[in-house]
Design a protein around this nucleic acid. Structure first.
Length: 777
DNA sequence: TTGTCGCGGGG
DNA sequence: GTGTACGCGACAA
């Protein structure tokens, strides 16, 4: 269905002055003929805000030209763009937002997620560099039953011609299918820029739009997105000789296709993980597996092997590529509902709400709309008064091993505090932000309740869960909005600080009350606390303590019993290991999991922590001794001691920096006889033994797919033995008395005569701080 | 402990 | 058509 509508473009100004030159063609809104062509209608907005005139006309260009003419006369210089006026002197939204704000409409009212016609496509290429590598296959599907693979083998041509033909067939298919939405994982970061670059190089028009021959256009986006995209060469080859000045400007653009919404599931994944922080990574495969979206017979091909696989077994790549778009669809359905629901609430395009930061991207348009609806003048963007932002509370009360651990936390602490204490940014004199938070919280509770009633898996449930997720995003970003000085219209650091101050008080009160009920406090952070229950407590006692503590908090602050665990190793704030009652271990924080861990150390740590938390101290000792022995006998493959790193400096750059700072990966390259390497290259490095210097950085060769090739076993045993002790065993130091630690991780050759037998050693828990006493006011 | 630099994701 | 804006972990000093 298509609907045509007309509206009068509008903008906001501080005064009528710049429009006065229109004379009789400038009329108050509502007077006869004010909305006729060639006229400008205006309305005064109430209150003290700076932007107090809303001007509109049948023709937006004419309106803008009139403002520019008046401003030029007033300032005595040529003003050619509204932005020359400075951001405090006008507000002019993109046309579609003007329309949405003016009419009160939004995207997708009355539609369910599945009503959209969504298409997913995924490029398979010979490599990551669009300047050099080519597209050889595209998988396409939609949510109406289409599944198709296009590839270069079908056209009977080869090389550039075949690729150009493939791109044209893709564009034709998209026009034919005519989807509302195009989705993929890392769509903006890879597929669109790659496609645009290849089409440009091959001279193929990319007519993907709904209207006429509209193509793929850049949209500026200030967000961090593009910043880390450049190393790939996508969207602009990066000079290898970049020691010469003027590093190419990073392409930070998003893309637009007229009439369609472009949705990147990577954005949805990031938004989800921002709060959940439980994803193993943000890649499509990892996320799909995490959510159980991967089919049992899912085809996997490692990235670097895809093109080689294509040449030997093309059907396998076809299956792989189709599995990719299927998973994208699943992911979009699972996580994309939040952006869809946001699009039904905020006056902004769906695709922009999907990638927007919540403060400037979502709350700001809602607030602008609220002010205009209220007929209130809009204040200029708030500037900070230099007030420092104060943060949340973080406490480590005890470290070591605790049993019967409980986690309690406050859901949505900050918005609850804003509501409880009516904390509102000062410039927001009509209280729009707080009203929004109030309304969203209530609607969210209603949506959650509805979702619970609806049948699992039903569209209704999906809609309500997505709505709830969207509102959670919004509500939680209200606090962030307060602190975003210089970015948002209504920021107010003092108000943000009041929120955190109340938060610290609430957390402190909670800790004191739990301690008073017999709990041993372990760690508290912002809105939650871990504590250990006394041995005689039942689960009911644990829940009662949490309920009693929660009852003493302010009414709108709701404490929840989040979970209970058999044991916890508390190491440092935000660094701990938990053992669930079913035996599942969880390692959290940098001290326990890091990409840079050598495989041997990670394996040791996992095993040792597992033993520790189940009370098996001899098992910890055994893990250490066995790892050490395997190391000394060189039974561990070299790759277990290596780590994979990416070279980001050219040989010239490293040479220049080398005297100031030596870096292992580059030293490994040099020691292995390489004086040339490419930027972005990945290598595997380790430390080999060396009689003269004791150790030298070395390269572990890899095959084409990044698998280690060769296993020289010449690693520096003494060095890695030290790493095992200092880097890995040390994470368990807090679990034992120093003497006991020395026994458990003592040298196998020199057992101490006076040491207690391992079996008698018990883990310890050491109190390091008392509950804070900042009182409530 | 502090400062600087690199990474994420896509083939 | 527009601009300055990430957050965290690792390593060397």
């Amino acid at each position: 269905m298509r609907e045509a509508d007309r509206f009068h473009p509008w903008l906001l100004l501080p005064a009528l002055e710049d429009l006065a030159h229109l004379g009789a063609r400038l009329l108050p809104e509502g007077t006869a003929g004010a909305d006729a062509p060639g006229r400008v209608a205006y309305r005064e907005l109430a209150g003290p805000g700076r932007l107090r005139i809303r001007a509109s006309a049948a023709d937006g260009r004419m309106l803008e030209a009139a403002v520019l003419k008046g401003a030029s006369e007033r300032l005595g210089r040529a003003v050619t763009r509204l932005s020359d006026l400075g951001e405090d002197n006008f507000l002019c939204l993109p046309p579609e937002e003007q329309y949405l704000v003016a009419t009160g409409r939004t995207y997708f009212r009355g539609l369910a997620f599945d009503d959209l016609h969504r298409l997913q496509f995924d490029l398979e290429t010979t490599g990551l560099n669009a300047a050099r590598d080519a597209i050889f296959l595209v998988s396409v599907r939609d949510n109406r039953g289409l599944e198709r693979v296009l590839d270069v083998s079908e056209s009977g041509r080869s090389g550039a011609e075949a690729e150009a033909d493939l791109i044209q067939r893709l564009a034709a298919l998209i026009r034919e299918v005519d989807p509302d939405v195009i989705e993929n994982h890392n769509l903006y970061g890879f597929d669109l820029p790659f496609l645009a670059k290849r089409a440009e190089l091959l001279g193929v028009p990319l007519a993907l739009g709904r209207i006429g021959g509209a193509g793929l256009k850049r949209r500026p986006a200030a967000r961090a997105y593009g910043a880390w995209r450049s190393a790939t060469g996508v969207g602009g080859e990066r000079s290898e000789r970049s020691e010469d000045e003027g590093e190419e400007r990073e392409e930070t653009g998003r893309y637009v296709i007229a009439g369609r919404e472009l949705i990147d599931t990577l954005d949805a994944v990031r938004r989800y993980d921002f709060a959940a922080r439980n994803l193993p990574g943000h890649g499509l495969k990892a996320v799909a597996r995490h959510f159980g979206l991967a089919a049992a017979d899912r085809e996997y091909v490692e990235g670097p092997k895809i093109y080689a696989t294509w040449r030997g077994d093309p059907d396998r790549v076809r299956r792989y590529a189709l599995d990719d778009v299927r998973e994208v669809d699943g992911l979009a359905r699972l996580l994309g509902g939040a952006a869809f629901a946001l699009a039904r609430m905020a006056p902004r395009r769906y695709e922009r709400l999907a990638d927007a930061g919540p403060a400037t991207g979502i709350l700001d348009p809602l607030l602008v709309r609220a002010y205009l609806r209220a007929g209130a003048a809009l204040p200029e963007k708030a500037t900070g008064d230099g007030t420092r932002h104060t943060g949340a509370a973080l406490y480590l009360f005890a470290c070591g091993v605790a049993r019967r651990v409980v986690k309690a936390d406050v859901s949505s602490l900050y918005p609850s505090l804003m509501r409880q204490y009516r904390i509102s940014p000062r410039p927001d004199r009509i209280g729009a932000l707080l009203a929004l938070v109030d309304r969203l919280v209530e609607q969210r509770l209603a949506a959650k309740a509805r979702a619970k009633q609806a049948a699992p898996g039903s569209p209704e449930r999906h809609t309500d869960e997505a709505l709830s997720a969207a509102m959670k995003i919004l509500v939680n970003s209200a606090y962030g909005y307060l602190g975003a000085v210089g970015l948002t219209r209504f920021s107010d650091v003092a108000a943000a600080n009041e929120v955190t101050r109340r938060g610290r008080q609430v957390l402190g009160l909670l800790c004191r009350e739990l301690a008073a009920r017999g709990a041993t406090l372990l760690e508290a952070d912002t809105d939650g606390v871990y504590f250990a229950a006394p041995a005689e407590w039942s689960e009911g006692d644990e829940r009662r303590a949490v309920a009693e503590g929660g009852a003493l908090l302010p009414p709108l602050v709701r404490l929840e019993f989040e979970g209970r665990y058999a044991a916890m190793l508390s190491h440092e704030p935000k660094n701990y290991a938990l053992l669930e009652y079913d035996g599942t271990p969880h390692l959290r924080g940098v001290a326990f999991r890091s990409v840079r861990f050598e495989p041997f150390g990670e394996a040791f740590l996992r095993r040792a922590v597992g033993c520790l938390l189940t009370g098996d101290v001899p098992g910890v000792r055994a893990a250490y001794l066995e790892t050490l022995a395997a190391l000394r006998r060189r039974e561990l493959p070299t790759s277990d001691l290596s780590s994979r790193v990416r070279l980001t400096k050219t040989p010239q750059q490293y040479e220049a920096a080398r005297t100031a700072r030596k870096e292992l990966p580059y030293e490994a390259m040099l020691n292995s006889g390489y004086t040339r390497w490419g930027r972005g290259e990945r290598v595997r490095v380790y430390r080999a033994s060396d009689r003269a210097t004791g150790g030298r950085a070395m390269l572990l060769p890899e095959d084409g797919a990044g698998e280690p090739a060769g296993d020289p076993r010449d690693y520096d045993v003494a060095y890695y033995a030290r790493v095992l002790l200092d880097n890995y065993a040390a994470r368990l130091a807090r679990a034992f008395a120093p003497d006991d630690f020395a026994v458990i991780f003592g040298s196998p050759e020199q057992p101490s005569l006076f040491a207690p037998p391992i079996e008698t050693i018990q883990p310890v828990l050491t109190t390091v701080a008392e509950p804070p006493d900042e009182a409530m006011d």
